Amino acid sequence: MQVEITDVPCDTKDEDEILESEFFDTRHAFLSLCQGNHYQYDTLRRAKHSSMMVLYYLHNPTVPPFVTQCAVCHLDIETGQGWRCDTCPDYDVCNACYLKDGGVDHPHKLTNNPSVADVNAQSKEARQLRVTQLKKMLELLVHASQCRSPQCNYPNCVKVKLLFRHGMQCKVRASGGCLLCKKMWYLLQLHARACKESQCNVPRCRDLRDHLKRLQQQSESRRRAAVMEMMRQRAVEVAGSSE
């Protein structure tokens, strides 16, 4: 039985802050995070722990995702308690080894790793600035797609219109390496992920939303197939052990 809902608020705009993390930009980046920290989802207990840790890194993007080890004693180095070589990749030394008599035998200068508080203080403003710029850019994208004034005074409206025009006329395309086309597609994809308008005027918005929906459905189908296969294999193992 269908029930009609009439008291839905008109304003459904999401006011939550946009969270950015390089580990959630691509599937391979997320896989690297899980493999590097041994996050697994094969049992409920491991899935709960892995999900909580993933959310922790999402809400704390400045926290190092991987634990570094001392190149001398090979023990884990706590955040802000070590020294790093800016020349050699992956060369870190803990405070205990650095302060030992005779120091560390290394040809390059070592710099002290900043603490989490220092990193947060330095990057908080940068993150807020990026979020603000992203919101303004998406608002500009919507405005430029609706604006019909040839001499609009809205900041950068003319530039975005020229970017639209370039995208329609370019022969190289993003697949061929055109930087302007890549920039345009990046903005269009960001908009399509958050857009809820049924009659959106932003170019290719509906096509991109349909494409993202198909990708999500395909991913969900693969996930269900993998779960069914795992359950089938377990059933075969249980049947074999009971014989």
Rank of each mutant, 00 (worst) to 15 (best):
P155Q: 12
R214S: 06
R127E: 07
H191N: 01
C157T: 01
S219K: 13
C200P: 13
R204I: 01
L162C: 07
L129E: 12
Q216D: 08
L208Y: 12
Q216M: 04
G176C: 11
D207M: 09
Q218M: 10
G167W: 03
C195D: 12
Q128Y: 02
C170V: 00
M137P: 03
L208F: 10
R204D: 10
K136G: 06
L138Y: 00
C205Q: 09
K182W: 00
P150M: 10
C200N: 09
S123G: 06
S175K: 15
C152H: 05
E125V: 02
D118R: 10
L180G: 00
E197T: 03
L180N: 05
Q199T: 08
A194K: 15
D118F: 06
C195N: 08
G176D: 08
S221Q: 13
E220K: 13
C157N: 02
Q133V: 09
Y154D: 05
H143W: 06
K124L: 14
V172P: 02
A194T: 15
R214D: 06
L215H: 03
R206G: 02
V158H: 13
A174I: 00
P155T: 07
S219R: 14
C205P: 12
Q128P: 03
D118A: 12
L163N: 00
Q217I: 02
S149E: 12
C178E: 05
Q151P: 09
M184E: 01
L190S: 11
L134I: 08
G167F: 07
A174M: 03
E125P: 03
C195F: 07
L208S: 02
A225S: 14
Q122D: 10
S219F: 00
A121K: 14
V160H: 00
K196P: 04
V160F: 00
N201V: 00
R173Y: 01
R222N: 06
H211R: 10
K135P: 00
G177Q: 07
Q146E: 14
H166D: 05
F164N: 01
L138E: 12
R223T: 14
Q189L: 03
R222M: 10
Y186I: 05
H166N: 08
V158M: 12
H166Q: 09
M137W: 02
V158K: 15
V119F: 07
R222K: 10
L141K: 01
A121L: 13
Y186V: 02
P203M: 10
E139G: 05
R165L: 15
M137T: 13
R173E: 04
V142K: 11
K183Q: 15
N153G: 10
R206S: 10
M137F: 05
R214N: 06
R148I: 07
K124N: 14
C178A: 13
S175N: 11
L188C: 12
C200E: 11
A144V: 10
Q151A: 14
L140T: 08
H191C: 03
K135A: 04
C195R: 08
Q133H: 12
R173F: 06
E139R: 11
A192T: 02
L190K: 15
V202R: 00
